[in-house]
């Protein structure tokens, strides 16, 4: 238990929050224009794999990352194509993508390596961590701010940039308008479909980075099943936030903290039970918010959604 109240524990939380933050951003980015992207888990899986394969083929971690992101964008575009052009139900397309991705990833891994468990036999450079020159020498601040994995910084910067894009630019305002009332937005002369495709592309990029973080930055190897529900946690965080950007970040952080707790707290005999805590936390949060919302609606404070 004593290892919970240390500075290192905060860095562990940061490490474990990052993939969930990426997934949350991915879910949020799609939801901004009113699209429910539930294929985040699948995109993360494919990008985690293609990041490693790309890195193996090009022998460059950065190019590998770009290839992984490209795959994420391609999947997001295909969701847009199926649901908008061909008129399929977006949720069903998402489910199809998730099931399809996990099998396809296995198939591709086998084709490339002859193995089905991991990418252990692929020589692939991975991304490192970054020590901020001056700050790293400051006692407490140095541990907190410096020496994190590269994609941790990227996630924070992207979270900030996406906030500015959504809330401070005309483009963001139009995107939000699509999400709030697509018909009104259309009447106002906004090309709703184009903005929805754009937001799906953002979603694909975020999800892809989340997957790449797992296989190329946090871990240095792709293991079958590596995403392990973290994409779904991001979707849950977005559900909890219900359109509020601040709540989104807090939810991602809370889920990350619960994961860190589950890994670091070691209670003999109850290890598996503690391991279920993060998933249970997601469940409880969603139920609690639903109840709070119902009470508010009953009191007449909020219009029924």
């Amino acid at each position: 238990m004593s290892n919970l109240f240390t500075l290192e524990f905060i860095t562990v939380i940061i490490r474990l929050t990052t993939p969930i933050l990426f997934a949350s951003l991915a879910s949020f980015a799609a939801a901004v224009t009113g699209i429910g992207n539930i294929a985040i888990e699948g995109i993360m899986t494919m990008s985690a794999l293609f990041g490693i394969i790309g890195s193996n083929l090009t022998q460059s971690a950065v190019l590998g990352t770009l290839i992984g992101v490209l795959i994420g964008v391609v999947i997001a575009m295909s969701i847009a194509f199926f649901s908008m052009r061909l008129g399929a139900n977006a949720v069903l397309v998402g489910i199809a993508m998730n099931t399809f991705s996990s099998s396809l990833a296995l198939f591709i891994l086998y084709q490339f390596t002859g193995e089905k468990g991991s990418s252990a036999s692929l020589l692939a450079p991975t991304l490192g961590s970054w020590n901020i020159p001056v700050i790293k020498d400051i006692p407490i601040l140095g541990t907190l701010l410096s020496g994190h994995l590269v994609l941790v910084y990227v996630s924070v910067i992207l979270a900030l940039l996406f906030y500015i894009l959504t809330y401070k630019t005309p483009l963001g305002m139009r995107m939000r308008a699509c999400g709030l009332n697509p018909d009104a937005a259309k009447t106002a002369g906004i090309n709703v479909q184009r903005l929805q495709v754009l937001s799906l592309i953002f979603s694909g990029i975020f999800a892809a980075l989340g997957g790449i973080y797992l296989s190329m930055n946090y871990g240095k190897i792709y293991v079958n099943g590596i995403v392990a529900g973290q994409g779904w946690m991001g979707i849950a965080a977005n559900g909890v936030a219900n359109g509020s950007y601040g709540l989104l970040l807090i939810a991602a952080l809370v889920f990350g903290a619960f994961r860190a707790f589950a890994i670091k707290v070691n209670i003999p005999r109850f290890g598996d039970l503690v391991g279920a805590v993060p998933y249970f936390a997601v469940f409880v949060t969603i139920i609690a918010l639903a109840i709070i919302n119902t009470i508010k609606v009953k009191k007449g404070n909020v219009a029924e959604q």
Binding site: R15, L16, S102, L214, Y218, G219, K220, I221, V223, N224, G225, I226, V227, A228, G229, R259, A262, I263, N266, G271, D272, V274, G275, A276, Y279
Partner: peptide
């Protein structure tokens, strides 16, 4: 014990 078990399996979490 690597107790972070999830739906996809027990032995797949290098992190």
């Amino acid at each position: 014990y690597a107790s972070d078990k999830v739906s996809t399996g027990f032995f797949a979490n290098p992190g």
